[in-house]
Design a protein around this nucleic acid. Structure first.
Length: 799
DNA sequence: ACGCCGACCGTCCGA
DNA sequence: CGGTCGGCGT
């Protein structure tokens, strides 16, 4: 979609004429030498190794703007590919801002999007060259699995002998490598592989017959389209004359092949491709990311220039040094070292806590303390963890303390059952050949059409003499043919068909919101939920209302953008069916990070993976325990590459922090009901200890009035279990948030006094150091065991 | 056709 | 532990 008038006229007054080749615009001056070199190297292949926080988005933005403004390249000839919608949106925004400020906004916008959105645009445009007969819908993982099960059913392959989930992951893996069913060569004795090839074949047929496409196929099909149609290939090569790829280290084989169709000289391409990546931030190997892409770039594009961006503008020296020391331990990396001119900053706080509850209590009390003490908004804070399951404790405590937070991950809004139901109606209306959606809604709400009936239809469909292609055909047949199903069922089927046909007829006249209300009215969906009356049902109704708001916003946006299109423009007004397709597509491609609002004053919770590309003044990294992070299932058989990927994840997490970094480990953690006692993460050993401020709270349990507020509901028995093994240098330093009020009996002459500690029993104070509130005492207990405590904290034990 | 109960199984995540 | 799914009983 082309944006016609983005530039207010006033902006271009007095600006030099754009498009003068060779002119170097002002925004280039704000780049450092390396960034400038990358931005100005517009011709030929270029690989930019950009460390964390080295300003690669700034460089890319400047480069694209320079191409358009300085070298007179038309915006639509510039392509920018990113991994998330959020990254694409940010880049688009920044490019447009630069162009607008220098008066070139009227030239239009470059094509910037994710691999998937760019490919979908190509596929829609070239749909007559694809197997699709109608606008296709996008299948998510759940839809895909349903289709796989259907394919296995057709082939009479038992789900117990071949796991559908296993097939799904094998199909997706094959698609990452751009392998089609015919490229799969099963080993002769491997039962799974032989079955897999058959299922994959059937699956592909079914998918196309449904006019549906899965995520992997979006890339693969586009690649094959360009590979097999030389005319198309050269036309897109002429169209996208300058190609930019962000996060290149995370591309898979299929994406790499696709790019090579557009740009590689060996395929007749222009070679103007700029890839930006950092192998130290490659964290998606398990998803098919292929490290060879970045290593072999020079081979695919001979004569490629290499530029390294090593200056970090984000973090303190302390954080950069610590992260650098960690990543240094990886072998599979290019030689580069991140450095920074930023201040030294404060030490990294490395806290050891008794359990996951204490971890959350400590985190939240620190957030409160720092937010108050340093006058920071809650939006400055973020909490990262390895797995989504770890978010629970943090949510509980944040909610209790009434601190606003936002959580990334977990269930997507569009993945909620009620939303998926309505979306399935939308999909089926747009594309009745979509059997997965039809099957989902045919008995939602309940219409008395059950599994037996669906199986009968599938069986009928499988008979070769019936030339029906889609499930919808079978449905139509059965609704009138009494030999297939009972008369009663036939009536029910006929009623369903009539309902759907009504929707299909009405749809072109309705806005999305009107269509939505028609569906709800005719199906009594909400009425049924109201009848249920449970809390869960009410939450669903609320979600549906929120969904309606989204629809209305979408309707308005598209009404206005249409209304504002210049008179006489060649673009056709969008049809309602196009808008419906567009909406469905957006929901399929939306991710959770995309809607993360980084300006809101809320604490952000997310996995380490989601954190990539973001930055926060204060970062808490939770669960740094061997086994959990690094995640290790099998201690003997974990290959070193897996540990290196975990180390990169650690590096990514640490380098998100600008000023303050907390690294936490729990001595004990409950996972799936089992208690685990893990060693502190091995990554701690890789950080220079002088950069860490070690705080050991692992013995701080159940100590009556003196206990710190961050120790929550941990049970008492733990104390006995762990007090024996506590590290001997355990020290509790500085104040941590909201200690209970101490009795005001702290005296000067403390050495030699006796105390009775709740954990360690009787002891003698042998030393005092520090001053004021930060005074610490060293106490010797039975067996010459020494411990150091904050005075405020143990004052009540002094006899 | 539907509802309940028990077995199973679980990372990370993305378009 | 907790959600999902499949099978079985009504």
């Amino acid at each position: 979609m082309i944006d016609f008038n983005d530039a207010p006229d006033g902006f271009s007054v007095g600006s030099p004429q754009p498009g003068v080749a060779g002119r170097i615009p002002a925004f280039i001056n704000s780049l450092n030498d390396r960034q400038r070199e990358a931005a100005l190297t517009t011709e030929g292949p270029l690989i930019v190794l950009a460390g964390a926080g080295s300003g690669k988005t700034k460089m890319l933005t400047a480069r694209i703007a320079y191409l358009i403004e300085g070298r007179g390249v038309a915006p639509w000839q510039v392509l920018g590919v990113t991994f998330t919608n959020k990254a694409a949106g940010e880049m688009r925004e920044r490019v447009e801002k630069v162009l607008r400020e220098s008066g070139s906004g009227h030239l239009g916008a470059p094509e910037i999007g994710t691999f998937h959105s760019v490919c979908i645009r190509i596929l829609r445009r070239e749909i007559h060259r694809t197997p699709f007969t109608k606008p296709f819908v996008i299948y998510d993982d759940a839809d895909q699995l349903t289709l796989i099960k259907g394919a296995m059913n057709k082939l009479a392959i038992d789900e117990k002998s071949v796991s559908p989930k296993g097939v799904q992951s094998a199909i997706n893996r094959a698609k990452c490598d751009a392998l089609q069913p015919e490229d799969v060569e099963p080993s002769a004795h491997n039962f799974f592989e032989r079955q897999f090839k058959r299922i994959y074949e059937q699956y592909q047929k079914d998918m196309f017959a449904n006019n549906a496409i899965d995520f992997g196929e979006i890339i693969c099909l586009t690649y094959r389209l360009l590979r097999d149609h030389p005319d198309l290939r050269s036309s897109y090569q002429r169209r996208f004359r300058y190609i930019h790829v962000d996060e290149y280290q995370d591309t898979n084989r299929a994406q790499c092949l696709l790019l090579s169709m557009l740009a590689a000289p060996m395929n007749g391409g222009h070679g103007n491709i700029c890839v930006v990546g950092d192998e130290d931030q490659s964290i998606y190997k398990w998803r098919g990311a292929d490290i060879r892409n970045i290593l072999d770039f020079e081979r695919e594009y001979p004569g490629a220039r290499i530029v390294k961006l090593e200056q970090n503008y984000r973090s303190s020296k302390t954080i950069i040094r610590a992260a650098g020391e960690v990543i240094k331990n990886n072998t599979a990396r290019r030689d580069k070292t991140l450095w920074t001119d930023n201040p030294e900053g404060v030490k990294i706080i490395r806290a050891q806590v008794p359990d996951e509850r204490a971890e959350a209590e400590f985190t939240v009390s620190e957030i409160k303390r720092v937010a108050q003490g340093e006058n920071r908004p809650y939006g400055d804070f973020s909490i990262f963890y390895r797995t989504n399951a770890q978010s629970r404790q943090f949510e509980d405590v944040l909610r209790r303390e009434k601190i606003p937070y936002q959580i990334v991950g977990g269930l997507r809004f569009y993945d909620r059952k009620e939303i998926k139901d309505i979306l399935s109606y939308f999909k089926a209306i747009l594309n009745p050949s979509d059997s997965v959606s039809i099957k989902r809604i045919i008995n939602t709400p309940a219409r008395g059409i059950g599994k037996t009936t669906l199986d009968k239809l599938d069986d009928w469909l499988a008979l070769p003499e019936n030339h029906a292609r889609t499930f919808w055909d079978a449905l139509a047949k059965a609704s009138s043919d009494t030999s297939l199903v009972s008369a009663g069922t036939g009536k029910k089927l006929a009623a369903f068909i009539q309902l759907m046909e009504r929707f299909i007829i009405e749809q072109p006249k309705l806005t999305l919101s009107e269509l939505y209300h028609l569906i709800l009215d005719e199906t009594a969906y909400v009425v049924d939920l109201r009848k249920e009356g449970t809390e869960e049902a009410l939450a669903r109704i609320e979600n549906l209302e929120e969904f309606d708001t989204l629809l209305q916003e979408f309707d308005e946006d598209n009404f206005f953008s249409h209304a504002e299109a210049p008179a006489g423009a060649e673009t056709k007004p969008p049809q309602k069916a196009d808008l419906l397709a567009l909406f469905i597509e957006q929901t399929s491609l939306a991710s959770d990070v995309d809607k993360l609002d980084d300006r809101s004053a809320t604490v952000k919770l997310m996995t380490l993976h989601s954190s990539k590309g973001l930055e926060f003044p204060v970062v808490f990294l939770a669960g740094m325990e061997d086994g959990l992070f690094p995640s290790i299932k099998n201690w003997e058989e974990t290959p070193v590459e897996d540990i290196e990927e975990e180390r990169r994840l650690c590096y990514v997490g640490m380098t998100r922090a600008r000023e303050k970094l907390y690294l936490m480990n729990a001595v004990m953690r409950r996972i799936w009901g089992d208690t685990h006692c893990n060693e502190p993460s091995r990554f701690f050993l890789e950080m220079p200890s002088e950069l860490l401020d070690y705080k050991d709270y692992s013995n701080r349990l159940g100590q009556g009035s003196a206990r710190s507020s961050f120790v929550g509901s941990s049970s008492r028995y733990l104390r006995d279990e762990y007090s024996q093994e506590a590290p001997s240098d355990s020290s509790v330093s500085r104040r941590t948030a909201t200690f209970s009020k101490m009795p005001g009996t702290i005296q000067n002459d403390l050495v030699g006094r006796q105390m009775s500690h709740a954990d360690y029993g009787p002891g003698t104070i042998i030393a005092v150091d520090g001053a004021g509130d930060d005074r610490k005492v060293t106490v010797e207990f039975r067996g010459r065991q020494q411990r150091k405590f904050m005075l405020r904290y143990v004052a009540s034990y002094i006899v």
